[in-house]
Amino acid sequence: MSEERKLVIPGDLLGKGRAGHGTYEEDDNVFSRFVGLAEEKNGMYFVIPLSGIYDPKRGDGIIGKIQDVIFSKWIVEINSPYDAVLPLSEATEEFIDLTKTDLTKYFSYEDLIFAEVSSVTSNKNVQLSMKSRRCRKLKGGRLISVTPAKVPRIIGKGGSMVEMIKDLTGTQIVVGQNGLVWIRGDNYSIAAEAVTEIEKKSHLSGLTDQIRAMIEEKISKKGEHSGV
């Protein structure tokens, strides 16, 4: 925990100022809405929740599963109470004649995709887009789920944490803001264990070194067992 962040619970008084995400204002005072870490920036208070389900926000990169294919769009489950819609126009640049094309050719039931949240309306209609270069279909691999609030820690500063796990384990890893982590490669169980460990210890500083040591140990052990 960095110094200026402090643990708060719902109803805790943060101070006088403006109410940012995770807070609310009443009688000129700002209070926390969540169990979380509070911080203040230029007179505005924020609380980063330490728990909770995934609440979609524009720009999030998420992992979703195709649930339904209807006329000109896909319905995508995104580990949230809200299903998302991926319209044809956001899925591909190609011209597609809907009268002749079966859309399951592109994305079919149960397919996993990495997509971006392109819009969220106030009553939580969520739209996805595949237009960004980082978006793609995810084939094979294994999915694990983590508390969405812990995702930033799994990614690490500038992606440092996830890059380290990828390097050490030789796996492909995709982390969705919605708390789903996709892992493919021979060492996926070691990578998965590392991710779970980060989730559990997300408060701790010096976590990167610990995780590195853990992975290196597991990999060398695995080598011994297989007689390498």
Binding site: P10, G11, F31, R33, F34, G52
Partner: peptide
């Protein structure tokens, strides 16, 4: 409820 991350005004 607080543990589940439900936004709350108070307990």
């Amino acid at each position: 409820l607080a543990d589940a991350g439900i936004p709350m005004r108070d307990l």
